[in-house]
Amino acid sequence: FVAVPGPCEPEDLIDGIIFAANYLGSTQLLSERNPSKNIRMMQAQEAVSRVKRMQKAAKIKKKANSEVDAPTLTEVDLFISTQRIKVLNADTQEAMLDHALRTISYIADIGSIVVLMARRRMPRAASQDCIETTPGAPDGRKQYKMVCHVFESEDAQLIAQSIGQAFSVAYQEFLRANGINPEDLSQKEYSDVISTQEMYNDDLVHFSKSENCKELQLEKHKGEILGVVVVESGWGSILPTVILANMMNGGPAARSGKLSIGDQITSVNGTSLVGLPLATCQSIIKGLKQQTQVKLNIVSCPPVTTVLIKRPDLKYQLGFSVQNGIICSLMRGGIAERGGVRVGHRIIEINGQSVVATAHEKIVQALSSSVGEIHMKTMPAAMFRLLTGQETPLYI
């Protein structure tokens, strides 16, 4: 392990350590995605004062009910590891709260108080329930729900430092898993590389042009399938929806002459497919069998995605991994994601050279030795298999 400053042994944080504390309560806040330190401080203070108000109200209520002896605090064991933070009831050892460490946004300590800020899950469809805009917020900036847990302990500072250390140990593991040696690269240095990387925004420009977004009416016979194969656009894509990968000869989709392979389907008969899992999109399309008219909203896209990665030096890892020519993982916020790399895509070309028949080792070699501008062409792996006849299309 790289030495990570803090009160614990990094090895102990992997197994997990326990601190005794009193759980005072939890509250929810709305927050922008990456708030400034000052805003975080205000959020922590707001959480503490809300929970203290709740405590006071509970005490008054208890007094009124003359349950003077009833405790207003819950004694807990705070379990901290590089994977999770759990809050266990000290008496029963029952888990009251359990958060994956990566979902913890930050930790605050003030005197004997510790505040844990965790991001709440937002459904993929970004429902209004979990994502809101604050009226009057500049340019309607998105607000995310956070849950704030407040604790009291003599060891408040030690608890906060231990969680901070767990953050660092887990982050170094994450960097290492993405091929970055934390010893070679300070976080500051990597942030600098990221900030010099332009967001590859051809996708965004393409999607925002109204001439690329079309509403189509397709005629079909009752009982006839639409005659399409759809695949996922791939994690990391700007528009997470299905892509038309193949059309059945003589089927309604092909007959219309209005669709092309590569088109992204955004809605079917008014039902949005954006953000839905592939299986759900497929069943929505299958559900059209008895219809005679189908309304599709599509974005015309070429079947091949263009990627541009700017890598100033070999010491900066690309931030994605490849297996047999297929991109299988992507580092969130890394230079590859910014450059347009999508999980599940097959690499077709690197710097103008076709790599479809190139051995895996050669592809890795070409990528690992490339610096400056790296141009790639990719397409969803499933679409590539269909187009090259390696897979038989199952039309729906």
Binding site: H99, A100, I107, F167
Partner: peptide, 21 residues
């Protein structure tokens, strides 16, 4: 007493809206 904030460096790599109930 002073208020100390320690931000999780993983935060910037997480997709917006990813979290837990």
């Amino acid at each position: 007493s002073a208020l100390t904030i320690t931000v999780n460096p993983m935060e910037k790599h997480e997709a917006p809206g990813r979290g837990e109930d």
